[in-house]
């Protein structure tokens, strides 16, 4: 695994959707008309393409990413970010899901993560599949793929923060370790 290869969040250049279109979607997703989309509302609106409920952990991560004032949901302005984020991931996922099965297998996952700059051992891909394959198919669905990338990125970020001399090693105390990883895994 090469540490210096940075993870790049998806910048897939999708054109920004127009406001009226987004507003329309926002209103449909915001079932209780509270002006803010909660975890549950977003989860119900999302599809992973396999007729199973969208990974609630992924939904929570995405909401937390865009929910600036910690209100437990996203308002219309923040929703634009959520929309773009998910569409970008969807485009990336489609690029790697060559057979359009709705799942990416170990090889496709390897290509995707290698494309992001990760250098991971072959055995580790087994661990990743094992951990993120919620449907036990030996492959990863769209929502679980996003989750996998989010977790990898966060762990790498938190590691880098402690690796001040950039040598790929960190020394941490027990509490530091717990605080570093508890919010991620």
């Amino acid at each position: 695994m090469a540490y210096h290869n940075q993870y790049r969040p998806p910048h897939y250049n999708s054109a920004p959707p127009d406001q009226a279109f987004l507003w329309n979607i926002f209103q449909r997703v915001d079932k209780d008309r509270s002006g803010s989309i909660s975890d549950t509302e977003l989860q119900q609106a999302l599809s992973n393409g396999t007729w199973t409920p969208f990974n609630p952990v992924t939904v929570r991560s995405i909401i937390a990413m865009f929910d600036r004032d910690n209100k437990g949901g996203v308002n219309f302005n923040e929703f634009a970010g959520v929309w773009k984020y998910i569409t970008d991931w969807q485009n990336i996922f489609r690029t790697y899901d060559r057979d359009n099965s709705g799942f990416i297998d170990k090889n496709e996952l390897k290509q995707a993560l290698t494309g992001f700059g990760y250098r991971l051992s072959d055995q580790f891909y087994n661990t990743l599949i094992e951990k993120f394959d919620r449907q036990r198919k030996g492959q990863v669905a769209f929502d679980d793929f996003i989750q996998c990338c989010i977790v990898l990125q966060r762990l790498t970020d938190v590691f880098r923060r402690y690796d001040t001399d950039q040598d790929g090693w960190i020394q941490v105390s027990y509490e530091q370790y717990l605080s570093m990883v508890f919010n991620i895994v």
């Binding site: 540490y3 990898l152 762990l155 790498t156 090693w169 960190i170 020394q171 990883v181």
Partner: peptide, 16 residues
């Protein structure tokens, strides 16, 4: 009460 982690090991064990 202190431990050293190498990047690969850190990611792998934490993820597992």
């Amino acid at each position: 009460g202190t431990a050293s982690f190498q990047y690969d090991d850190f990611i792998q064990c934490t993820m597992s």
